[in-house]
């Protein structure tokens, strides 16, 4: 099995999907000749031509709106929003249109689109090239949100998203693009949208995360296993919406402790729903208060590294939180 990074996994999966199925198209800013500002669509234009790899004007609302229309017309569009920070003009098309099309038409119409969204901080992107936007869409039934951060999960979930009959927001953490490498399964490899993945089994506490902080949690758990003999169970949500409540609750019933970590802001984040679910469904199993670790509630990630570090959760903080909770 080949080893690739997350970015290569995105690109190669798109290439495979487009090679196999004429209906698959990509559209967005700079996705064509340029190959995308992160090179995620590099080579697609040359291989599949301008009918299927569409350089759009700088206009996010219509990028999503055109994708919706193309899906009505029988295509399987993969729209790219260049940075999550620029998705806001498309919110009407995503929340009022894509998410509601099946429901409002009583099942007569569907909206099989994928919206690829590079997101996340730690890349010196400042306020407008660093944002996490998942909480914005998390309270919108009708949407699916996936956030894989290993090359295999990227492949399996991107293929699933392309063929999913409903709109999928596909979050790609920018810091994972080159930093995270792993095995890339060849050929047909599809993972179901929905189930979380237990990335590390453990008995002492449960860490629920996704994105780059999931990798911090994994690293911290390995270190604490060696250093302190603490066995943390690390759950990678992978799909944020719909949320896999069962895997979370089953794990907490086993370990009795829960730490939720994400890079999005604390207030109203996915972690709040995870915590509430455990409080509802596994309260009697808890041996410690539920702990949440997330970005500070400031408007966005500041530019200077000192400020950025002060705002985002770090691996050291994750490790410390695991240790504290294990000792509670």
């Amino acid at each position: 099995m080949a080893v690739k990074n997350v970015l290569e996994a995105v690109r190669d999966t798109l290439f495979e999907a487009m090679g196999r199925d004429q209906r698959v198209m990509v559209l967005g800013e700079d996705v064509g000749r340029h190959g995308g500002v992160f090179n995620a669509t590099q080579g697609l234009y040359e291989a599949f031509g301008e009918d299927r790899v569409v350089d759009t004007p700088l206009a996010e609302s219509s990028i999503v709106g055109i994708a919706i229309g193309a899906a009505f017309g029988g295509l399987l569009p993969v729209a790219e929003i260049q940075f999550a920070d620029f998705i806001h003009p498309a919110v009407d098309q995503i929340i009022n249109e894509a998410a509601k099309i099946r429901y409002r038409s009583n099942g007569d119409f569907g909206c099989p689109i994928v919206i690829r969204v590079p997101y996340g901080g730690g890349v010196h992107g400042g306020l407008y090239h660093s944002q996490s936007v998942e909480a914005l869409f998390f309270s919108t039934p009708g949407l699916k949100i996936v956030a894989p951060t290993t090359p295999a999960d990227v492949k399996g979930l991107l293929l699933a998203a392309i063929y999913d009959p409903d709109p999928v927001i596909f979050l790609e953490h920018k810091a994972s693009y080159r930093a995270i490498k792993g095995e890339y399964p060849e050929g047909e490899f599809v993972l179901p949208i929905g189930p979380a993945d237990v990335k590390r089994a453990g008995t002492d506490l449960t860490v629920v995360s996704y994105g780059m902080t999931m990798h911090y949690a994994l690293q911290a758990a390995e270190e604490l296993s060696r250093e302190e003999g603490i066995e943390a169970e690390v759950i990678d949500l992978r799909t944020l919406l719909p949320l896999d409540r069962r895997t979370i609750v089953d794990s907490v019933k086993k370990t009795g402790k829960l730490l939720v970590v994400h890079e999005d802001n604390l207030t109203g984040g996915v972690g709040a729903e995870v915590a509430a679910t455990v409080a509802d469904e596994a309260f009697m199993y808890l041996d410690a208060p539920i702990r949440r670790l997330a970005a500070l509630d400031v408007p966005s990630t500041p530019y200077h590294p000192a400020l950025e570090r002060a705002m985002l959760p770090s691996k050291a903080q994750v490790k410390e939180a695991i240790l504290e909770l294990a000792r509670y």
Partner: peptide
Amino acid sequence: IVTQSSPVATQLPHACGLAWAMKVR
């Protein structure tokens, strides 16, 4: 006849996407 919403103008990009699909197909 395509399902519609109450916010106005959102259907215009859909028309473009549909036209794109018809054209390439």
